[in-house]
Design a protein around this nucleic acid. Structure first.
Length: 904
DNA sequence: CTGTGGACTTGTAATTAGACCT
DNA sequence: AGGTCTAATTACAAGTCCACAG
């Protein structure tokens, strides 16, 4: 199927391939090994993609197919659908997605959406092959499936995208430069910007959501902050158990054709271009290149602009603020930018390859450096040593205070923390200080003082808070933005980390150590050659170094005071086009894997029994990474927490359970516990037994392997493939499958429920856990109470209803008041309403309980291709902002105009 | 090859904003 | 209109992976 598809003439749609993927989900049950089950039992079974099926969909989009793609696509694509926040309407399920224009009327929004694009109807008809592929996991493979398609070459497919970066850049660069230069000056002087400077994403945001600039110019609506929080908590999140889905039987395609090794060297992956061109790739499958969505930027801009309008009209309900800022923009700048910029921006966005290393990431870069935390203000509160007040110097007091405020955390229970703190603090105290040991220290006075300060803050009136906040915003405003190739972009973390005690996760050997204050002299700035160098904010000091390296995206860095070999970087925010672009490339790579996965699975399956132990280990490791979404597992130093990933699994982390199950138990990233028992294919099981043979529990399970060997191998299978791509792939394809399988007609709330359920499955697969909130049980009991109350109300209503039907007046309410005489109809309505309310609360409660240990956000932010979500929202008329919050909308601005038919 | 510096993504916890009651 | 509670945002730790030097 796949193959044919490619030829399909549907050019139009070509833009997106929609394909279906074949990887059908398989259901597998997880064996939960132990675990307490979390309430909902249901869960555990989730659908998973089956490993075997490969998809071969050639997605091909037209594009690939010869030429047509390119030319057409472009043109046709213009109108891609875009989601308009809130009001968006989308085409109904007609697969064709044609969204009909009509919708737009409805909303008043111009929906730019898909409408424009006319897709050929045929599209809709495109047969989706998929069904067959989805097989229950147990089923063995379908043989035929395996057809791999051959890849076509995709060379042309993407026009622009394929172009080498340099070429692409070229075009813009000049303009950009000029522009940027011009802007610079102004930028550094005043930040009011015009909107032209705003990046697309930002604009989108602005228009729909709020204006960024306004923030600074006008009063921010936001209120002052200082709420004090309560204590610090620390949860030991560690061991939350959960069951995770696993796939049981995986089956691979038979055909394995391939042996893996291909000889060809791979081009470097990182470069997308390489991907595309890479023909030499061994495994070959259909390289689909992606792209879909690339709506030209110009279009996007356009769209966004319009959306602005609409939005403002419409008002965003969700969105809180409207922007006033428009006015503030300077027109001058505007025009200036406009011309070049748009185009530039667009180009850059779409084309840049970005990540390749060594590649140019920007042409001009202007920013104002970083902001430092305020100097320490001594409070003079004396701590006690052996019951007596001790005088400390400000430096000593500062560190003592850091320790004092940790009192309510679990770190205080850790000897390592205290020991490390003592070692560092003692250096400041000096050997002959009165304070000779930590045990005799009483930090209570300092702790109490801090608490009262917090309390004071909390008590401030909202006006005061607001004023404070504004002040801070003003101070920070200039640091919040950078101008990259003439486009104003938000900076991610421009605040230098304040000094404090290191809070490592898990049993980190360095926890409690003093993280010293960072000074300008520790900081290296990276900025455009022609941009003014930010003035060092601390008088008398200067930056460590100034660089003009346009092959990297960081604006500044300093070395980590805890581990000098590491660096802390200041990058652009997630909403920037630079980040957006690499994000998109990440998903495109994962989509590419979809085309190769069948062969890859076939290959590693074949090697399960390979005599070459290294190959065998690679095969098994790859299998685990694919099936369980394990992380690669780089080597770690002794001065880091002892956690593992796939390549660093120890013998003790995997317990075979005959006949063919493996029980995993280890601490992964962030010392989060991974516990899962899965059924595996017998050869895998046997291989594990073999790898464990004659080893000690603490020995490496995969002793012949490390991540660089593994990745080197993966790269032979698909250009650019690394271990982490499997996580992205599995997460996204799972979402895509589940959404498409489970979404039914119904109201928006139900659809959102389907989405959240799919999101949850992904979180489980990726082991994204969170600690149970301290107040969880309190929250639950509160809900229970409320439900009980409602239930009582309901009962009363029913009684009254009965009486009303008989013409009697209602009983007095519990507090003795007389109730109004209502008609039976009115009472019936009330009963129904109450019932609905109760049901909703019960559902909410279940959901809450169900998700108490599962973090949905991580996968949404990092693993789920936003285009899947956006397209699904369009198809099912779910407002995108019900799924993506403001930050996500900004971050995923690049995905908003995806075609409704997009499939991962 | 291997080790390491370097750059960037991913991840959980803490903090804050603001929605939601009352 | 203030307090509570949760969702959003920030903080910053902890991974991944690449390139290059030795």
């Amino acid at each position: 199927m796949a193959v044919e598809a490619s030829d399909k003439p549907h050019v139009l749609d070509g833009l997106y391939d929609d394909d279906d993927d074949d990887d059908g989900p398989v259901t597998f049950k997880r064996s939960t090994a132990s675990k307490e089950n979390r309430t909902s039992s249901e869960v555990r079974k989730s659908t998973f993609r089956n490993h075997d099926g490969q998809s071969y969909r050639q997605t091909s989009d037209v594009r690939t197919s010869n030429g047509q793609g390119s030319g057409l696509r472009k043109g046709s694509s213009l109108p891609k659908g875009k989601i308009v926040p809130s009001g968006m309407v989308s085409p109904k399920k007609s697969s064709q997605g044609i969204s009909r224009a009509s919708s737009s009327h409805i909303n008043a929004y111009p929906v730019k959406s898909s409408i424009a694009k006319t897709k050929s109807p045929s599209l809709g008809d495109k047969p989706k092959p998929s069904l067959e592929w989805k097989i229950p996991s147990d089923v063995k493979e379908e043989s035929n499936s395996i057809r791999h398609l051959i890849g076509d070459n995709s060379e042309d497919s993407e026009d622009e995208d394929n172009r080498p970066l340099s070429a692409r850049l070229k075009t813009n660069s000049n303009n950009a430069n000029k522009e940027a230069l011009a802007v610079v000056k102004k930028f550094s002087e005043d930040f009011d910007d015009d909107d032209n400077d705003i990046p697309l994403s930002a604009r989108l945001k602005n228009s729909n959501l709020e204006t960024s600039s306004s923030k600074y110019d006008d009063a921010d609506p936001k209120k002052p902050i200082s709420k004090v929080q309560k204590g610090l908590k620390v949860a030991s999140s560690a061991s939350i158990k959960q069951e995770r889905p696993s796939t049981l039987s995986v089956k691979r395609p038979l055909d394995n054709k391939a042996s893996l090794h291909s000889s060809i060297k791979k081009p470097k992956l990182s470069n997308p271009d390489a991907l595309i061109s890479a023909k030499p790739v061994p495994m070959k499958p259909e390289p689909k290149v992606e792209d879909d969505d690339d709506v030209p930027i110009s279009q996007r801009m356009k769209l966004s602009a319009s959306s602005d309008k609409s939005s403002s009209l419409k008002k965003s309900k969700n969105v809180t603020k409207v922007n006033k800022s428009g006015s503030s923009f300077k027109k001058q700048a505007k025009k200036f930018k406009k011309s070049s910029n748009n185009s530039e921006y667009s180009k850059s966005t779409k084309l840049l390859p970005s990540s390749g290393d060594g590649q140019k990431k920007w042409t001009t870069l202007v920013h104002n450096g970083v902001i430092f935390p305020p100097p320490y203000q001594p409070h003079g509160v004396k701590m006690l040593y052996k019951g007596k007040p001790v005088v400390l110097t400000p430096e000593q007091e500062e560190v003592a205070t850091m320790f004092a405020v940790m009192r309510d955390t679990d770190y205080m229970l850790k000897d390592k923390f205290k020991e490390n703190f003592w070692t560092d603090w003692r250096k400041l105290l000096g050997k002959n200080h009165v304070i000779q040991n930590l045990n005799d220290c009483d930090f209570t006075p300092i702790y109490d003082w801090c608490q009262s300060e917090k309390e004071k803050k909390k008590q401030m009136s909202s006006e005061e808070k607001k004023a404070l906040k504004e002040e801070r915003a003003k101070l920070e405003e200039k640091y919040m933005w950078a101008i990259v190739d003439g486009v104003k972009e938000k900076v991610g973390n421009f605040r230098v980390e304040p000094p404090g005690l290191f809070r490592g996760r898990g049993e980190h050997p360095k926890m409690g150590k003093l993280k010293k204050r960072i000074c300008p002299n520790d900081i290296t700035i990276n900025i455009g050659k022609d941009a003014p160098i930010p003035k060092c904010p601390i008088p008398g000091e200067s930056w460590k170094d100034i660089r003009h390296d346009n092959t990297v995206t960081w604006l500044a860095f300093w070395s980590d005071p805890i581990n000098p070999k590491l660096f802390k970087y200041v990058f652009l925010a997630a909403s920037s086009s630079l980040k957006g672009q690499s994000d998109k490339e990440k998903y495109e790579k994962a989509r590419t894997l979809k085309g190769f996965i069948g062969n890859i699975r076939a290959a590693y399956t074949k090697d399960f029994t390979c005599g070459d132990i290294t190959k065998q280990q690679i095969a098994v490791a790859t299998y685990l990474i694919d099936k369980l979404a394990l992380r690669a597992g780089n080597e770690k130093d002794d001065d880091e927490a002892d956690t593992v990933g796939c390549c660093t699994l120890k013998v003790e982390n995997v317990t075979p359970e005959a006949p063919n199950k493996l029980q995993f138990n280890f601490l992964g990233k962030d010392s989060i516990k991974y516990e899962n028992t899965v059924e595996v294919e017998l050869p895998v099981y046997n291989a594990i037994l073999k790898f464990q043979k004659d080893k000690q529990p603490g020995d490496d399970l995969f002793d012949m392997l490390d991540t660089s060997k593994l990745n080197a191998h993966l790269k032979e299978l698909m250009p650019g493939l690394t271990a982490k791509v499997f996580r992205t792939f599995n997460a996204s394809i799972t979402l895509d499958d589940m959404l498409n399988k489970d979404t039914k007609d119904g109201d928006v709330a139900e659809k959102i429920g389907v989405y959240n359920h799919a999101n949850k499955q992904v979180a489980i697969i990726c082991n994204h856990q969170r600690s149970v909130s301290k107040s969880h049980s309190a929250q639950m009991s509160r809900l229970t109470e409320k439900i009980d109350e409602l239930q009582a109300v309901l009962k009363e209503l029913k009684i009254d209803l009965d009486r009303a039907r008989k013409g009697k007046p209602p009983l007095k309410s519990s507090d003795g008041k007389t109730k109004r005489n209502l008609t039976p109809e009115a009472l019936e309505k009330k009963v129904a309403q109450t019932n609905t309310k109760i049901e909703k609360m019960q559902r909410d409660m279940m959901t809450k309980e169900d998700l108490k240990t599962v973090a949905l956000g991580t996968s949404k932010i990092n693993y789920l291709d936003p285009r899947i979500t956006v397209a699904w929202c369009k198809r099912h008329e779910v407002p995108i902002e019900k799924i993506f919050n403001k930050s996500l909308l900004a971050k995923f601005a690049w995905a908003m105009d995806v075609d409704p038919d997009f499939r991962f």
